[in-house]
């Protein structure tokens, strides 16, 4: 398991390789890449600003991954999330799930991404050309 709440994400290719080597039982690696969208309604987004309670965020993500291991039997997972300023088109978050088969990988991946939005102490301010908005996943 690898978890990172950081200014700069690792290279996605190296994360895939690292995960691939963690077990010979792996038959599927499913991946989610979150990207900064350039619009908010009719407004043009300039950047997103992220901040986190880093230790609690890592602890919560570890708990989420462990629960997915029990629920879907996934082999392992990697989650990295940016902090600081992220501009349009840049990657925000990587979630990678290694599993024996694709089905449990898809299910676990979807659940991990959803739970990160609602359970992990990370905050986001969307800066548009007009204004700034704190985004609340409620």
């Amino acid at each position: 398991m690898k978890i990172g709440i950081k200014q700069k994400l690792d290279h996605l290719g190296s994360l895939i390789e690292e995960l691939r080597k963690s077990s010979t039982e792996i038959g599927a690696i499913t991946i989610f890449v979150g990207v900064v969208r350039g619009t908010r309604g009719n407004e043009k987004v300039v950047r997103l600003e992220y901040e986190a309670h880093e230790s609690l965020a890592s602890e919560t993500i570890e708990k989420i991954i462990n629960e997915q291991k029990t629920k879907y039997g996934i082999i392992d997972a990697v989650v990295e999330h940016r902090t600081g300023s992220v501009t349009v088109g840049e990657d925000i978050m990587y979630v990678l799930v290694a599993s024996k088969h694709r089905r449990e990988g898809h299910l676990a991946l979807s659940e991990i991404v959803e739970r990160i939005k609602f359970e992990v102490p990370i905050w986001k301010k969307e800066i548009t050309e007009k204004d700034g908005y704190w985004v609340e996943n409620v």
């Binding site: 979150g34 992220y50 986190a52 309670h53 609690l56 965020a57 999330h81 925000i92 978050m93 991404v113 990160i116 939005k117 609602f118 359970e119 992990v120 102490p121 990370i122 905050w123 986001k124 704190w134 985004v135 609340e136 996943n137 409620v138």
Partner: peptide, 10 residues
């Protein structure tokens, strides 16, 4: 004591 608004990650 950490005081936290609703989360907004992802």
């Amino acid at each position: 004591i950490a005081i936290m608004p609703p989360f907004g990650g992802g």
